[in-house]
Design a protein around this nucleic acid. Sequence first.
RNA 1: GCCAAAAUAGCUCAGCGGUAGAGCAGCGCACUCGUAAUGCGCAGGUCGUGGGUUCAAUUCCCACUUUUGGCUCCA
Length: 582
Amino acid sequence: MSNTQKQDERLLKVRHSMSHVMAEAVLQMFPTAQIAIGPAIDNGFYYDFDLPRALTQEDLDEITERMKHIIKEDKEFKKIVISKEEARSMFADQVYKLELIDAIPEGEEISLYNQGGFTDLCRGPHVASTKELNGEAFKLLNTAGAYWRGKETNPMLTRIYATAWTNPKDLRLYLQKLEDIEKRDHRKLGKELDLFSLHEEAGPGLVYWHPRGARIRMAIENFWREEHYKHGYEMVFTPHVGKSWLWETSGHLGFYKESMYSPMEMDKADYYTKPMNCPFHIMVYRNSKHSYRELPFRWAELGTVYRYEKAGALHGLMRVRGFTQDDAHIFCTPDQMESEIEEVLRFSLYMLRSFGFEDINAYLSTKPEKSVGDPERWAAATESLKKALESEGLAYEIDEGGGAFYGPKIDLKIKDAIGREWQLSTIQFDFNMSERFNMTFVDKDGAEKRIYMVHRALLGSIERFFGVLLEHYAGAFPPWLSPEQVCVIPVSEIFNDYAQEVLVELKKHGLRAYLDDSSDRMNAKIRNAQNMKVPYMLILGEREMQSNSVSIRYRNGKQENGAPVNDFIASVLEVVKDKKQL
RNA sequence: GCCAAAAUAGCUCAGCGGUAGAGCAGCGCACUCGUAAUGCGCAGGUCGUGGGUUCAAUUCCCACUUUUGGCUCCA
């Protein structure tokens, strides 16, 4: 066993043991509490309780104190093996434990762990004694509601989340990481950098892009369109609403009616706002007969869709009710299927890397329970996705049952600057839509055959992708994405004319630049530009004016004085072209 | 949708039974300045919405809306 494995195992034991200590503390305070489960999780642990009342911050403080006290007592964790009957009588007043006991298969060992004042049904393992725990290396973080066994129909329990480590230093590092996450929060940065807003009075979960946010979005979308044309795609534009026939045929009304916006009645027909673009692209396909000679079609659209997400699920840009998919549908012959999927995979990786994401993992999702279509075709489709992954040499994990109702899929997840994983790309096989919409092509032999169809989104939702980018770069976008690339700052009003000249020159070369000619002092202007995370600041005064040069202050505080204007422009253009970060 | 917490000026926040306060931003005036905030002044709020308790509610209670942390969900 490697050292890191040993450490992981030890942390797991520490966290799990801590959860028992917390349960003991909670039971001291609420003797009638029902206890559920308390596992170790990433960075800590939680325990679920059924409590007589809601917990306050003061309660958490008291639980913390009691836990420290228990830890100091140096109590041994003793394992006790008992029979099912004994277990039942021991936990006679603990309804959740009884349920757990009943679920243990006959013949399997039932073990308890006791640390003196508290005994829990538990398969372990634990540390030997509470003295192995560090009372200064844990922190109760928050409380949350959680359904018993994660089922919506079950009662809601109170979950206490905590983080726990073997020593106070690791705890401190983790708490710092939490602070970092908070600083990077796209909702906070979106406000500070004036990028976007949401308005309760105008509808929750609907995004308003401000000029500075729109600049970034345009940079993303322009790049996206160029690359799609380069990669053999065509653009289409389709409507935002369509008659119910579309959604009945596609199956969306059957599967997702409750999360579609309510229909509008027009001319005695129901029109739905689109939750997906596919039926529209299919309408384009069905507009005429197609020969195998024309295929494949790769049709892309930045299509804005609307889905009624549950109120409690909304979250900034990450989970919204109206968003823009960077969607495309590939219509091809069965022969072309595999190479098309391979090509999409390659394209996808190229796009993600262009935005600065290097750490990418692939996931293959197979047939879910709630699905349509013949299982044999599911198996064949899954196999072809697998082949594509393997021929790309991508390592992948399998998400059993994670596919869409109409087909298996490949998802790509990236790791951001602080190691968090986000799902962006999705490539979905669809052998269902072509059936439902009766989509065919005429093959070499003159026979009409079923078309194959792939849905894919590389960035996912533009809104969400923007949120991920914002957090990844903590607001300091690489220049090619920055809403403002250069801020021109005259040392005083006297140099406004020279600053204006330089500005004109920058704009002539297509750079996004602005002149701060406000009545602020130079220091304040630098501070403002710095706070807006503008990558380049040009400080212009007497010296620069004399030599037709600029003094560059970079976002990171570094400086370069007296650079010729043209040299500066050339270097920025190169950074922009290469999509480099500063 | 469920559990819990929150909602006060454009933003960040203080106040808390006697109908509101700061900093920043905004506006005005002065300063003309060399690498992260020049000074002074002015203006700005039916304290999320609707009910209730009270002589009196921003403050206490109830409902609703929205937000936050989770749970569930995520084509």
